[in-house]
Simulated scan of single mutants.
Amino acid sequence: MRSIGIPTIALLLGLIATSVRADVDTPNSERQAIIGVILAQVEAFASDDAERAWGLASDAVQQRFGSPEVFVGMVRSEYPAIYGAESLEFLEPIPHPGFLIQPVFLRGPDGHYWDAYYRMSWQDGTWRIAGVTLKRAEAGI
């Protein structure tokens, strides 16, 4: 598991490859690339950079929403926990034929915890975010 606070994201983005599959046979390089894409989008939301957040979404997501402004407006209103995430913890990815699910445990701006499941797709030589399912995390011990 990996936990990251939002203020450290800018530093991490310089360390994580986000646009190249360095070694297809190395799951760790794939995982680092996927984490880098998710972190880059969360950082883009945090800095209100609609173009950057939009550029990390899959073609299907872009076609559905039509513009960066509409996309970011939807995330801001429908996924405030992601838009204003205060911390992220990356869990083990779940591979599927043709895509991958990256589970993320996060704390939203309201202090509540959430389970986010990012659907990641490989297109145009990079990982892109094809969707997110978000649900409130179960209270635990």
Rank of each mutant, 00 (worst) to 15 (best):
I4Y: 07
I4R: 01
T8I: 04
T8K: 07
I9E: 00
I9V: 15
L11R: 10
L12S: 03
L15E: 14
L15G: 10
I16G: 01
I16F: 14
I16L: 15
A17C: 13
A17G: 13
T18N: 02
T18I: 11
V20W: 04
R21H: 11
R21P: 05
A22M: 13
V24T: 08
T26Y: 07
P27M: 09
E30C: 09
E30F: 03
E30P: 00
E30I: 06
E30R: 12
R31T: 13
Q32M: 14
Q32T: 11
Q32P: 02
A33Y: 01
I35V: 15
V37A: 15
V37D: 02
V37S: 07
L39A: 05
Q41A: 11
V42M: 09
A44Y: 02
A44H: 06
A46C: 02
A46Y: 02
S47Y: 04
D48W: 10
D49R: 06
A50F: 09
R52I: 04
R52P: 04
A53T: 07
A53V: 07
A53W: 05
W54V: 00
W54E: 08
W54C: 08
G55V: 03
L56Y: 08
A57Q: 07
S58F: 04
D59H: 09
Q63Y: 02
Q63F: 03
R64T: 09
F65Q: 03
F65H: 10
G66K: 07
S67L: 04
F71M: 14
F71H: 10
V72M: 13
V72K: 01
G73K: 04
V75Q: 04
R76I: 06
S77Q: 14
E78V: 12
E78N: 15
E78W: 06
Y79Q: 13
I82P: 00
I82G: 01
S87G: 10
L88N: 05
L88Y: 00
E89M: 13
E89I: 06
E89C: 12
F90P: 03
F90C: 11
L91G: 07
E92R: 11
P93C: 03
P93A: 08
I94Y: 01
I94F: 06
I94K: 11
P95G: 10
G98K: 03
I101S: 04
V104T: 14
V104C: 07
F105G: 01
L106H: 02
R107A: 12
R107E: 15
G108M: 10
G108K: 06
P109F: 05
P109D: 12
P109K: 00
G111C: 10
G111N: 09
H112G: 13
H112T: 13
W114V: 03
W114A: 03
W114G: 09
W114S: 11
D115A: 09
D115P: 00
D115H: 14
A116D: 11
Y118N: 05
R119Y: 02
R119E: 12
M120Q: 09
S121V: 15
T126F: 07
R128Y: 00
I129V: 14
A130W: 01
G131S: 11
G131R: 09
T133D: 15
L134F: 10
K135S: 13
R136D: 05
R136K: 14
E138R: 12
E138A: 14
E138P: 06
I141A: 14
